[in-house]
Nucleic acid binder design. Structure first.
Lengths: 374, 374
DNA sequence: ATATCATATTGCGATATTGAAATATATGAG
DNA sequence: CTCATATATTTCAATATCGCAATATGATAT
């Protein structure tokens, strides 16, 4: 399209490429945008004039005229990223150049309800800004449970009392006059991986999210897959064992269940306050319980890898505390259980992002959606 | 882009939309192309002048000026679609309006080799044209085994002696001076489903292909998924049983295995000459063997549906001879085995396309790739 | 009848984007 | 020092495409 809308879209694409560090000069940016160098130069001039981009010196290649390096201007504004569940609200401030400049966490009380969560989100966004300059450009929210992204509504979430058809966007719009964008928890993590994690170089990857339940997010051709019932990746609800009946896989493979199995406690035992720390202390264990967990994960990865054939599987959530050995053991065992994968074991990596992956991803979402004014 | 290349691309997109029947007038076409009505009018004028499109009367809607209906001109040329495996070569002729106007099948002798297959393909393409008018515009090939689509080379196929690194495109280019385009068997079937089958209205669907082996093709956002090792959908190589070791799923679920189980013969028994007919005669059976097969397929569909959440699963290959009951039984059993799917059972349908789906898909591939000359 | 509304197509001036050529800056060979 | 080659950016006329206004056609209400 040749509409002004399309121009703005192209300008924002240009900024995304420069921010990501993939495009460093006008010429490279032109290739990335699949636009001509002349057009790209015109864009860059506009964006420099509007204060969104700046030149940062020259870089000499092997030959020829040096590149005039481009970067995004940190002070051109900032984005708020929020992720929450029944236990906590996390908030990050990301400046216009994509740097994480502040992180806040608020533990929710046991009796938190819908109103208090919304209030807390608004409070954290305000607090993110305190003492800093620059304009808020957008708010991204990663919300748990079932979401209606178009309406900006949280449809249902079992672990927060009264969380049904909550108009998150509308409520926050009372306090902040910027675009507010809502997405599922696991899906924003997929975005975080693209911007801040190992997905930077990849067009295809899979997020493994064993947390309270067990879902996965699949990115193919740079796009998150979404299904008819928004149930894509809901593999936590597979029957378990795989050729049995009754139970759900997430009962055996969610983070709490893995801790229980490794710690050797019954399912009625209380969970530790800090699951991540508790798991870390178990990262060196071995024996039957460890093998059992690895084996179960390998079964799942085998199925996934022959179906999705992704170049990387990023493990997220508390189980990353189990360290690299957990991932390599699973990959090895996958190749053993699934002979077809002998020569192409899945590349499983613990995400380099921490517990704030969701909030970072929410901020990424806001960054991706942002467009210059006119 | 303002390039002539992009203009041609848009013209071919316009033709694809008109041919598919989705776009019936200039206005509707503009929406489909996401271009402005004025631009679209300009395109349509050009394409009418070049003889690719024609107006076919008016259609009065509920209100307003009637649509000036558009259609593709059948005589503007034709496409050849070829699919083959170790047993037969199939060829279809599809005219410019997307109508299948001729179908040829050639059974290969037991001792067929690489050269004879290539020769037969060339002969069939020539025969497709006999007695008809119009120019050949493109050739699509659906080839079995491992393919290098970019090079137009058949890399490997176990069931044809000497089929290794066969330069299919180069060989055929000696006889035909039109674009020749190569794709995997199952993948062209996915295209056939989009153009001629139930995928016309769908952006997302899955092809189930239990034939010699068992692979699936997944279409999401209108695009076929492809993986790092071109192994996306190779679920026939899942271990079987699912939580066991050793065997591959396709040994139990490929079309021949299903026939054996339903017919109650051992795995050493010879296969019937016409597997499809043999299966059709078994479509009314019931009892343990039937339940067993349905159960196994339901296990697989349950896993797939919670992962892909597709609105439709199209069954292809000989097993379609088992009729609608086979599909509905599987869907029912899936919902039973996988409680999470109780309210969203998979929509499994026997493809409306017959044995020539592959050849039709190959022709579709050629149609999609075609672009007007200048 | 006639006004008004909804939709489809055409015409035209405005503009976003291109391709080609010109310019800028580096390396290396003779 | 000069020339050839390589890469990056800038300039500019040419044009594909857009938005908008005008025109066409018929449905419905008054």
């Amino acid at each position: 399209m040749r509409s002004p809308e399309e121009l703005r879209h192209n300008l924002s694409r240009a900024i995304l490429h420069v921010r990501s560090g993939h495009a460093t000069s006008r010429r490279v940016l032109a290739d990335a945008l699949r636009l001509s160098p002349s057009t790209t130069g015109y864009y860059v001039d506009q964006l420099i004039a509007s204060g969104h981009l700046a030149e940062s010196g020259l870089e000499q290649g092997r030959m020829g005229r040096p590149k005039r390096m481009l970067r995004t201007v940190p002070g051109a504004g900032w984005f708020a990223g929020i992720e929450f569940n029944a236990e906590r609200v996390q908030a990050v401030r990301v400046d216009f150049s994509g740097a994480q400049t502040r992180t806040l966490t608020h533990r929710l009380p046991e009796d938190a309800d819908t109103a208090s969560v919304l209030q807390e989100i608004a409070r954290l966004i305000t607090e993110l800004h305190e003492g800093r300059k620059g304009a808020l450009l957008g708010i991204g929210i990663g919300a748990p449970g079932l979401i209606d992204p178009a309406a900006g509504v949280g449809v249902h979430y079992a672990f927060l009392p009264g969380w049904r058809n909550v108009p998150v966007r509308a409520e926050l719009a009372k306090h902040f006059e910027v675009p507010i964008i809502l997405k599922n928890n696991l899906r924003v993590i997929a975005l975080a991986e693209r911007w801040f994690g190992g997905g930077r170089e990849l067009d295809d990857y899979v997020i493994l999210g064993p947390r309270r339940g067990f879902g996965i997010a699949v990115v193919k051709h740079g796009r998150l897959l979404d299904g008819q019932h928004h149930a894509t990746g809901e593999i936590g609800r597979w029957v378990w064992p795989l050729n049995g009946e009754g139970g759900e896989m997430q009962q055996a493979l969610c983070s709490a269940a893995v801790w229980r199995r490794l710690a050797g406690v019954t399912s009625t035992a209380p969970l530790p306050g800090d699951l991540r720390a508790a798991l870390q202390s178990l990262a060196q264990v071995d024996g039957e319980a460890w093998q059992g967990v690895v084996n179960d994960y390998a079964r799942v990865l085998g199925l996934l890898h022959l179906l999705l054939d992704a170049p990387a599987y990023f493990l997220h959530g508390p189980l990353t505390a189990l360290g690299r050995r957990f991932c390599t053991d699973i990959a090895l065992q996958t190749a053993r259980l699934m002979p077809a994968l002998k020569d192409m074991p899945p590349n499983i990596v613990a995400s380099s992002l921490g517990d704030d992956a969701g909030a970072l991803g929410a901020a990424s979402h806001a960054m991706e959606a942002w467009q210059p004014r006119s």
